[in-house]
Write a protein that binds this DNA or RNA. Structure first.
Lengths: 331, 331
DNA sequence: CTGAAAGCGCTAACAG
DNA sequence: CTGTTAGCGCTTTCAG
């Protein structure tokens, strides 16, 4: 350590701790220590410091989040998480690890150094990796299924059938699904269950694939304008795509909901849904509540009151706004 | 520890580490340890674990972020930060601490256990608190001024004068500032320098105060519709307020930019600015770049290549989109 | 199969 | 004013 680099063990600690004044260390010693530290590229070891000073009562929870188009959704998740931590009255730090889709394994090396981990946005590959390894830290999976880990979910099937039922009830006959490459199994389920329910009720369904972003939604919207037959309703896989599509429609002189109704997966900020040019009707993804459930689950795992394969599924609701009405009998 | 709670010191470690199989610990001992741990509410100490296993090479940087309407902006900041960390090839964890405006002091107790801290969104009170205390950890302030700490800034004055100059050049004569309660001195500077430049050039300036959110912007927009004299240009203090206002205008049958032009402080996601019902012309706040500068500054502070009162100011640019044109001579 | 012992890097008494 | 010492809670050889 910097101990070899000059004077003594504790003197160093005093100087580096900024307690030079009160302990009356002469300037000369201070500079000796400081320059030595600089030359050795000394970095104090925070783990040792924490251990020694007993700054150890607060839990550390790692949150893994994909650094792609889903990054903005982290805000809602963190909001829920922070709220629940506050409510729980526990001291708890959250450490964010962002990772590339399918690259979870590279980012997760040192899980053991946290009290618990919440893993979000895992792809099928990422899940395989998790299933095949043994971790000795409580792990909660956000919106994924597993028979090895604890998970917090929504009913992806219902997220597809509900909008389909609404379109049926509202007597639409030509739907289009605005979607993107599938990043996780649940997304396919949403698409397929919409497809099944809608076609089962005699609705003709087309699909438009674009990048999951406003830009992608915009391109998708332009493509939808040229679709034959022209659809009378859209199921969009994200708020971002919906906003892009809305803009494309408005440029094309198409009006939502008059010319076609739109229901989106409500995975964006509530304000953005409400203050879009046409406020967006959504199948609401309760991310804040899911985050809370994730946190609670880590605590239960830590206390041993639940055991690993354990799942919670949160109910989903439809929020009718301008872009699509409600079931006719509720209006 | 759980050591008293049954058998031995290291056996516990083996069992809790999940190495029971390979070390052939009999089931009976395992359960003994496990139940004891449960009853004692045992939580392994991550600091000790890190220290012992030398998982210590990675820096830990605390990021303090206000948990209010600015929460969504954390995404852009984190994006920049992550990118720079990746580029730097250093292992570095970021720990997010959200705090209530004016309550930084409550959240910051244990700064010593990080390698460095980046403090964002500090209010005047928060700054006072920081100035008056001595910390012995490298601290970087995001978008604040201080003669004690290192800071990364934009030219708040220019953020006000630039839109004013554009409005002048575009021959507007009646401006309105859509703003909210001031959360930090820089915001006042933006408003005042706009006011000074605009009134100096003979523009009549009104102000509308609302909450800094889309909802607030919407209410503000409605109020603007009834303003006498009716303005021909708006300077909005955030993308969120702009989006709300845009919606209010469109409901009132007003068109942007035909009836009035709008320039916003570009503090939201780029996509949201581009895909708003009318894409928003902004004085761009380079948050990602500022985050990068913050990270670089922590590293320089750590290596001793810079000393505390040190500032970096990033240039700001105007991005003309639909809601307001550029300087006439650039068009 | 399990216990004893050492030591990670640091800080806080307590003596010099 | 500065050095010595002990020990934070854990894991890891190494002997039983």
């Amino acid at each position: 350590l910097a101990r070899a680099a000059g004077v003594s063990p504790s003197t160093v600690s005093i100087v580096m701790g900024g307690k030079s004044e009160e302990r009356k260390i002469p300037m000369i010693t201070q500079t000796k220590v400081l320059t030595a530290a600089r030359e050795l590229g000394y970095r104090s070891n925070v783990a040792a410091k924490r251990l020694r000073t007993q700054m150890t009562e607060s839990l550390e929870i790692a949150v893994f989040w994909a650094s792609d188009f889903r990054a903005p959704m982290m805000v809602r998740f963190l909001r829920g998480l922070q709220e629940e931590i506050l409510d729980s009255k526990k001291r708890c730090e959250i450490v964010i690890h962002t990772y590339q889709n399918n690259m979870l394994k590279e980012s997760i090396l040192a899980l053991g150094i946290y009290n618990a981990a919440i893993i979000c946005n895992a792809s099928a590959d990422d899940l395989d990796f998790l299933e095949q390894n043994k971790f000795h830290v409580p792990i909660v999976l956000y919106n994924r299924h597993s028979d090895k880990f604890c998970t917090v979910n929504v009913d992806d099937n219902r997220m597809g059938t509900l909008p389909a039922e609404i379109f049926v009830a509202r007597e639409h006959s030509r739907a289009v699904i605005l979607t993107s490459d599938s990043y996780f199994p649940g997304m396919d389920i949403r698409v397929e269950s919409f497809l099944r329910t809608a076609t089962g009720a005699g609705i003709q369904v087309q699909q438009v694939h674009q990048e999951n972003s406003m830009a992608g939604g915009y391109e998708g919207g332009k493509r939808i304008c040229n679709l034959q037959p022209f659809p009378d309703c859209i199921f969009s896989m994200s708020d971002a795509m919906s906003i892009g599509a809305l803009r494309a429609f408005s440029e094309a002189g198409l009006h939502v909901p008059e010319n076609l109704e739109l229901i989106s997966i409500g995975n964006g900020d509530r304000e953005i849904e409400e203050y879009a040019s046409t406020s967006i009707s959504v199948v609401h993804l309760p991310m804040e509540d899911m985050a809370k459930a994730c946190f609670r689950m880590t605590q239960e795992l830590l206390s041993g009151s639940i055991e690993p394969p354990y799942s919670v599924e949160l109910p989903i609701v439809y929020r009718a706004r301008e872009s699509c009405g409600d079931f006719p009998d509720r209006q």
